[in-house]
Every structure is written in structure tokens, then in C-alpha cells.
Design a protein around this nucleic acid. Structure first.
Lengths: 179, 179
DNA sequence: ACCAGACGGTACTGATCGGTTCCGTTTCCG
DNA sequence: CGGAAACGGAACCGATCAGTACCGTCTGGT
């Protein structure tokens, strides 16, 4: 059986944290929803904070895998990141960027959760920079952060408006950066 | 003495909510920090949620007053909103946009706090649209939301990086919209 | 000088928080 | 088939949550 309880905890926690926020979701709810016993939880994680970090680390990897996959499937052009975002915005359970949300919710920049979120953004920026470099864009090191700024702006706006329009708007703005 | 306790509660709550998040700040801390008695609090506000809404409403008005004042002082050009943001980002207590933070923290779109935050963004967008119209920009109704997307993107990025650079980056991107 | 209203402090409620402990069951593997 | 590890359930801990009730005090207006 390996550690099926652990997987269930990660799945349930990721879903609940993303939907309602980390602080808003108590252990009780995670346990009843996942069907994992309280003792079993503490056999896998030393604390709720450790669960949070584990959830974020896994989501970071999966999210970037997803982005790479979608961008590649859409042709590999840097601007395709905005088309990928549009797909994300359209999902019924879309609730913004889990890492932006985490950084805002856990105000303390020293907290492990906050740092995992910060690392996620750095890795996404590095990926975009690679896309720009492959595309032969001028000064990818300068352009990549601007792309990420547009991605984050679109994400926050989409969360507020609940439409995919911000992805198109951001893409339009990004076009001027990549000829 | 009018209602000095109420003012103190609003001041203290606004500061604590902005610094640590609404959910992270308990009534106890608001009361001890402000020096207001527990009973007095409930003489002014029916609940913590009501305090939250009152804080957000007041902050919305003051924030937009501040923005108009700064933009006017900086010449009244639409792009001046990004110079104003840069000033904001530089402050030691900068912790992003209180309204974005609120929408993310209180996930429920039906909640009063969430709606006050949404209204704030609508009012800011309307203000920017007015700036664009006064400046003779083409299609202000389309451009204003893009400006706000850039403002929000810059704000989120500045929160993450703790520099004023995102304001400049966003301003550069906005330049292409307003000739 | 008086009175009424606004006030701060304290003790309390029930609910929920994260975390610990024990106990009986289920499941996998040799 | 048997033992060991993983498991679910439940009772319990102290701390904290939002909210209520009662107290004595301070203050401003007449």
C-alpha cells in the first residue's frame, strides 16, 4: 500500500487550501475529507506547516510541468504562456495563483511556505527567460520578469473578473516586448 | 469626546489587517493594541466582519484620494499612476494591495469584504479611464483595464521582490498604450 | 455640581484551533 | 499463516477564536 494516506492528504489539502485558503482550512476538515485518521496525519507530517510546504512543493513541480507541456503543445512561442493561462482561467475551480495567494496569506517572508512560493516564481521566470532566449528575443533577462509581471497581473485580474479576457490583454501587452 | 474609540479601532485594525492579514489578526490583539475595551468594541461594531468592511471602505476612499492627489501633483498624465505606485512600493510597511489581499484571503465572492474590494478596483479603473480620456487617449474603456492589470501585476511583483522596479517595468509596458 | 453616556477591565461562554496519546483494525509481505 | 507496519477512530490537551454580560470609572454637557 506504500503510503496511500500521505497521497490522499496531499491531494485533499491542495484542493482545500487552493479553494479556501491555507488558514481557513483546519486540520479537522482535511482529515474528515480525506478520510485519514488524526494519528496517521502526524505519522506523515510533523505539523500543518510541514503539510503546507509539501503541498506547495508538489504543486510547484506539477504546475511548471503543466506550463511546459501546454506551451510546447501550443507551438513553443513565448506568448503561448498567455494562451496556457487562458485555459487555466477558464476552469471552474480557478482561484488565482496558489503561490501568490500563499505569499499574501502568510505575510512573514521568512516562513518556509512564503519561500517556496518565492522560489516558484523564480523558476517560472527562469523558464520564460529560456523561452525568450530560444525565440531569439533581445535581452531575455530583462523581458522575462516583465512577462511574469504580466502573467501575475492577468492572474489577479482574472480572479477578480472571472473571465479569460485578462489573458488576452496581457498577451497583447507582451507582444510589444517580443516583436 | 465624540467617538474616539471608534477611530482608534479603525486605525489599529487597518494597520494590523494590512500588515498580517485579516484572518491572522484576532480581536484580542486589536483591543490590546488600540487600548479599547472589549465591550466598547461591540458598542461600535456588531461583529469583526463589520469592522473589516468599515476598515476597507475607509481605506478605499483614502487610497483613491491619495492616488488622485499624487497623480495631479506629478502632472496628471495617465502614466503618473505608476510613479505614484513606485512611491507606495518604497514604503517600509508596503504589503501589497489591501484589496487584492482581501479578495484572496476571503475566498467567498459573496462576502461583503470581497465585494468592497471588488468595488474598489472598479472605482480605480473608472478613475484611470477618466485620466486616459482627459489625455485624449484612444479607446479609454479598453485601455483602462489594461492599466489596472499592469498596476496589479506591478503591486504583486513588488510585494514579492520588495523593490520599486516593477513600477518602472509596468510603466514601460503602459507607454505603448498611451503613445 | 450633577447626571447620563461613553468608556476600559475582567470574567465568562461555546466553538475551534493545532497537536498528543492510546486502542483496535486492516493490510501487506515474508 | 503469522507478524509487523500502516491505518482509522476517538478522547483529550492547552490555547485561541468571536461574542456576551457585568462592573466601576471617567468625561462632557447642562
Amino acid at each position: 500500500m506504500a503510503t496511500r494516506a500521505r497521497e490522499r492528504l496531499l491531494d485533499t489539502a491542495e484542493e482545500l487550501f487552493y479553494a479556501d485558503g491555507i488558514r481557513a482550512v483546519g486540520l479537522e476538515r482535511i482529515l474528515t475529507t480525506s478520510g485519514v485518521g488524526r494519528a496517521s496525519f502526524y505519522r506523515h507530517f510533523a505539523s500543518k506547516d510541514e503539510l503546507v510546504v509539501a503541498v506547495l512543493r508538489r504543486r510547484d513541480e506539477r504546475w511548471r510541468e503543466w506550463l511546459t507541456e501546454r506551451v510546447t503543445a501550443l507551438g513553443g512561442h513565448p506568448l503561448a504562456v498567455f494562451d496556457a493561462l487562458a485555459e487555466r482561467f477558464a476552469r471552474a475551480d480557478f482561484r488565482g495563483c496558489a503561490f501568490i495567494n500563499t505569499m499574501i496569506e502568510t505575510a512573514d517572508p521568512e516562513s518556509p511556505a512564503h519561500q517556496v512560493a518565492a522560489e516558484h516564481k523564480a523558476k517560472v521566470t527562469a523558464y520564460v527567460e529560456g523561452l525568450l532566449r530560444d525565440h531569439g528575443a533581445g535581452d531575455p533577462a530583462t523581458t522575462a520578469p516583465q512577462f511574469v509581471l504580466l502573467m501575475d497581473g492577468a492572474t489577479v485580474t482574472a480572479l477578480r473578473e472571472r473571465t479569460t479576457a485578462p489573458a488576452t490583454q496581457a498577451r497583447t501587452l507582451a507582444r510589444s516586448l517580443v516583436t
